[in-house]
Amino acid sequence: KELVLALYDYQEKSPREVTMKKGDILTLLNSTNKDWWKVEVNGRQGAVPAAYVKKL
């Protein structure tokens, strides 16, 4: 499985998103959308802005 690093804090704004903190390591589930990537963090799945994460 592919991992990404959170470059910034992000507070979810809808139920389809997830909150992450700078430095979090997230499991990347889907990166086909260039703006929003689906990730899993702390057992929750949701979208985060692609510009806020970097593939490891």
Results as ranks from 00 to 15, higher is better:
Ala6Arg: 00
Gln11Met: 13
Met20Pro: 00
Pro49Cys: 06
Leu7Phe: 04
Thr32Tyr: 10
Ala51Asn: 12
Thr32Lys: 10
Ser14Val: 05
Met20Glu: 01
Glu2Gln: 14
Lys13Leu: 10
Arg44Phe: 06
Asn42Glu: 09
Glu17Thr: 08
Thr19Phe: 06
Pro49Lys: 04
Gly43Ile: 03
Asp24Met: 13
Gly43His: 06
Asn30Val: 09
Ala50Thr: 07
Leu56Ile: 14
Leu3Thr: 08
Arg16Lys: 13
Lys1Arg: 14
Asp24Asn: 06
Asn30Lys: 07
Ala51Cys: 15
Thr32Arg: 09
Thr19Glu: 03
Val18Asp: 01
Glu17Met: 05
Gln11Phe: 14
Glu2Ala: 11
Lys13Met: 11
Pro49Glu: 03
Gln45Leu: 08
Tyr52Gly: 06
Met20Gln: 01
Trp36Tyr: 08
Val48Asp: 01
Leu3Gln: 11
Gly46Tyr: 09
Val53Trp: 00
Pro15Ile: 11
Val18Ala: 05
Met20Thr: 03
Asn42Phe: 08
Ala50His: 03
Asn42Pro: 05
Asp35Ser: 11
Ser31Pro: 09
Trp36Lys: 03
Asn33Cys: 11
Ala51Gln: 12
Trp36Cys: 08
Glu2Thr: 13
Gly46Lys: 05
Ala51Gly: 12
Ser14Asn: 13
Ala47Asn: 15
Ala6Ile: 03
Val48Pro: 00
Leu29Ile: 14
Val53Pro: 02
Leu28Val: 07
Tyr10Asn: 01
Val53Ala: 02
Asn30Ala: 10
Ser31Cys: 13
Asn33Thr: 07
Met20Cys: 07
Gly23Trp: 06
Leu7Glu: 03
Asn30Trp: 07
Ala6Tyr: 02
Val18Met: 11
Thr19Arg: 05
Val41Glu: 02
Tyr10Pro: 01
Ala6Lys: 00
Met20Ile: 14
Trp36His: 03
Pro15His: 11
Leu7Ile: 11
Tyr52Cys: 14
Trp36Gln: 02
Asn30Ser: 13
Met20Asp: 01
Tyr52Glu: 03
Glu17Leu: 05
Val4Gln: 01
Trp37Ile: 07
Gln11Asn: 13
Ala47Gln: 14
Val39Ser: 00
Gly43Leu: 05
Lys1Asn: 11
Ile25Arg: 05
Glu17Ala: 06
Pro15Tyr: 10
Val53Gly: 00
Ala51Val: 10
Thr32Asn: 13
Leu7Arg: 04
Leu29Glu: 02
Lys34Asn: 12
Lys55Ile: 14
Ile25Ser: 02
Tyr52Pro: 02
Val39Ala: 00
Val41Leu: 15
Tyr10Ser: 01
Ile25Pro: 00
Glu12Gly: 15
Trp37Met: 04
Gly43Trp: 04
Val18Cys: 09
Gln11His: 13
Leu56Pro: 03
Lys21Asn: 09
Leu29Phe: 05
Ala47Asp: 15
Leu29Arg: 03
Val41Asn: 13
Leu56Thr: 07
Val53Ile: 08
Tyr10Ile: 01
Leu56Cys: 15
Asn30Ile: 08
Ala50Trp: 01
Lys54Gly: 09
Thr19Val: 04
Val39Pro: 01
Tyr52Asn: 06
Lys34Pro: 14
Glu12Ile: 06
Ser31Trp: 09
Gln45Gly: 07
Thr19Ser: 15
Glu12Leu: 08
Tyr10Leu: 01
Gln11Cys: 14
Asn42Trp: 08
Leu56Val: 10
Lys21Gly: 04
Lys54Glu: 13
Val53Leu: 15
Asn33Leu: 09
Asn42Leu: 07
Gln11Thr: 14
